[in-house]
Amino acid sequence: MIDTARLAGFFAAHGVWCVSEGETLIPLLGYQHADGEYGMDRLMFDDFAEGARAGQDALADGDPSWVGAVLVADGYIHLEQGKTDALIIEAVQYGPYRQSMQVAVPYRPADHGFAVHKPKFMDIDCDDPNLGPLAEAFFVGAASHTEANAVWEAHLDESI
């Protein structure tokens, strides 16, 4: 699940980069092939929710060439401060049995002074649900997307 957590971090950073300029994120599906190569599809639909549903279907179905896949969609989570914009990341590792994790990356939209808050690890379903190594892999993946990570780091607000 470590490789999939790293994949999730990489595409979460890409999502942060996309919303940093004030755009609503077009849902994206990132995946990793057995040779380690990443791929990505933008889920362009008339409605963002339709794109997110198509991404969830793709995660559920998988692809024989994928070892892991990640859906990143723009949404909301409820925190102590109330309803908060967030990138919702759903990650699946394929194999003899599926493992998964869900992470939210709360952010403040650009029209209110863009900021990225601490990720919230919400649901982990894997053989070793120890958050420490998964979180570390997630942040390593985010840092590996150099341009996007620079935006994330420049706008990091850990108060939430």
Score class of each variant (00 low, 15 high):
Met1His: 10
Ile2Tyr: 10
Ile2Gln: 08
Phe10Ser: 02
Phe11Asp: 03
Phe11Tyr: 09
Ala13Cys: 00
Ala13Trp: 01
His14Glu: 10
Cys18Trp: 11
Val19Ala: 03
Glu21Met: 03
Gly22Trp: 04
Thr24Lys: 11
Pro27Asp: 01
Leu28Ile: 05
Leu28Met: 12
Leu29His: 15
Leu29Lys: 08
Tyr31Ile: 03
His33Gly: 14
Ala34Gly: 12
Ala34Asp: 06
Asp35Val: 08
Gly36Gln: 14
Glu37Asn: 12
Glu37Asp: 08
Tyr38His: 05
Tyr38Lys: 15
Gly39Asp: 06
Met40Leu: 10
Met40Lys: 13
Arg42Pro: 08
Asp46Arg: 12
Asp47Met: 09
Phe48Lys: 03
Ala49Tyr: 13
Ala49Arg: 12
Glu50Arg: 05
Gly51Tyr: 11
Gly55Arg: 10
Gln56Thr: 04
Asp57Ser: 12
Leu59Gly: 06
Asp63Met: 13
Ser65Lys: 07
Trp66Ala: 06
Trp66Val: 04
Val67Arg: 08
Ala69Lys: 14
Val70Phe: 07
Ala73Met: 01
Ala73Val: 02
Ala73Ser: 09
Asp74Asn: 03
Leu79Gly: 08
Glu80His: 06
Glu80Asp: 08
Gln81Val: 07
Gln81Ile: 05
Gly82Asp: 14
Thr84Phe: 06
Ala86Leu: 01
Ala86Val: 02
Ala86Pro: 02
Leu87Tyr: 01
Leu87Asp: 01
Ile88Cys: 00
Ala91Phe: 11
Tyr94Glu: 10
Pro96Asn: 14
Ala104Glu: 00
Ala104Gly: 09
Val105Gly: 01
Tyr107Cys: 00
Arg108Thr: 13
Arg108Met: 11
Pro109Cys: 15
Ala110Cys: 07
Asp111Thr: 13
Asp111Met: 04
Gly113Lys: 07
Phe114Asp: 00
Ala115Asn: 07
Val116Arg: 02
His117Ile: 00
Pro119His: 05
Pro119Lys: 03
Pro119Gly: 06
Asp128Pro: 04
Asn130Gly: 08
Asn130Arg: 13
Pro133Ala: 06
Pro133Glu: 14
Pro133Asn: 14
Ala135Asn: 15
Glu136Leu: 09
Phe138His: 09
Phe139Gln: 10
Phe139His: 15
Val140Pro: 04
Val140Asn: 07
Ala142Asn: 05
Ala143Phe: 11
Ser144Arg: 15
Ser144Lys: 10
His145Val: 01
Thr146Trp: 12
Ala148Tyr: 13
Ala148Ile: 00
Asn149Lys: 13
Asn149Ser: 04
Glu158Arg: 01
Glu158Trp: 00
Ser159His: 14
Ser159Asn: 11
Ile160Cys: 15
